Simulated scan of single mutants.
Amino acid sequence: MGRKRVYGVTLILMMISVIAFGLSFGQTPEGVVATLCFFKFWLGFGVGGDYPLSATIMSEYTNKKTQEASIALDDYVWLIILMVGAIPVALTYCWRMKMPETAHYTTLIAWNAKQAATDMATVLNVELEAKLEKVERLAMEPSSSYGLFSNEFLRRLGLHLLGTTSTWFFIDIAF
């Protein structure tokens, strides 16, 4: 088929797979996952063909001096592509910092039921009123009266906390 034609086929396969992956469809969650897996497989197939073919084409077209300059340029291009990936993260950060704090935190931790009601009314686009007596009653329940380093905390949540932290610790070591 020739390198140029195979290169084009792998790139088209990658483009179609990425677009289809982003537009995954299905009536059920299982159908969506199956569609995602299907198109992820074909994306991997295209990438698997593209990588060695790119290296082969580059090595056949360039002499030693041009090849070294091209490799240096490729290093900068990949760094720029990686940095461009920070743009969606920065936009997400800006959007999330404009969001109000959750009502649970504002009410039970910051003790501001009125602000919580205002924030939730804005987010949900409905009218809410703060019920201060209910907040005070919830705050006085025994479930929220123990501290972070208390025996009650260890008795209720210690085993779960130990299990979660040790699991993450071992995953970090494995990686």
Rank of each mutant, 00 (worst) to 15 (best):
W42T: 14
K65V: 13
Q67N: 11
N63S: 09
V32K: 12
A110H: 06
D74S: 11
K40Q: 07
E30W: 04
L157H: 15
A55I: 11
V18P: 02
E30G: 11
Y51T: 15
T10D: 04
M120C: 15
G85P: 03
P142I: 01
L148V: 10
E133G: 03
L13D: 09
L138V: 07
N125A: 08
R5N: 07
L132M: 14
Y146R: 01
M99Y: 03
S17E: 01
T118Y: 04
S166M: 15
A90R: 04
V9L: 08
M97K: 10
A103N: 01
I171M: 09
T167R: 08
T122N: 13
L157I: 04
G49H: 05
K65F: 08
L161F: 13
S70H: 01
N63W: 02
S150T: 14
G8C: 02
S70R: 02
S143C: 13
R5I: 15
L148Q: 05
V84P: 06
G85T: 02
V18L: 13
M1D: 08
K98C: 11
G158N: 05
L154Q: 11
S166V: 15
F39H: 10
F45R: 00
P52H: 00
A116N: 08
I173T: 04
L108F: 15
L108I: 10
T35I: 00
A72M: 08
D50N: 11
M15G: 03
V6W: 03
A103F: 10
I71E: 09
W78P: 00
I57P: 06
L73N: 02
E152T: 10
G26K: 05
G44D: 07
M97I: 13
L11E: 10
I71V: 14
G49R: 01
V18W: 00
R155A: 14
R156K: 12
I57D: 01
R5A: 10
V89D: 04
R137W: 14
A86Q: 05
L161Y: 12
E101G: 04
D172G: 13
T165W: 05
E129F: 05
T167C: 13
K114A: 14
S70I: 14
L124Q: 13
I80L: 07
S150R: 02
Y76S: 04
Y76E: 03
G8N: 11
G158C: 01
R96Y: 09
F21G: 14
L124M: 14
L36R: 15
D119W: 03
L11K: 09
E30F: 06
P52Y: 00
I19R: 00
G158A: 00
F41K: 01
S145M: 10
E129Q: 11
E127L: 00
M58C: 07
A113Y: 01
